[in-house]
């Protein structure tokens, strides 16, 4: 018996390169992309956040 906890949203932008640099985060030693968001989608959803 499976219960789906999470699946990726359909909306994807691929390879636009607008995402933030991975190393500009908190750790400076354990970089990971798993907790980064897509900058393009974030901007589209929050147009005032990053103009």
């Amino acid at each position: 018996m499976f219960k789906t906890i999470a699946k990726p949203q359909k909306r994807k932008v691929t390879g636009c390169g607008e995402c933030r640099s991975t190393c500009q985060s908190a750790c400076k030693t354990s970089c990971t992309v798993g907790n980064q968001s897509c900058e393009r989608i974030t901007r589209e959803q929050n147009p005032e956040k990053i103009k």
């Binding site: 699946k7 990726p8 691929t14 897509c38």
Partner: peptide
């Protein structure tokens, strides 16, 4: 861990 959004 963002499994629903996240980067491409």
């Amino acid at each position: 861990i963002d499994l629903e959004g996240g980067v491409c």
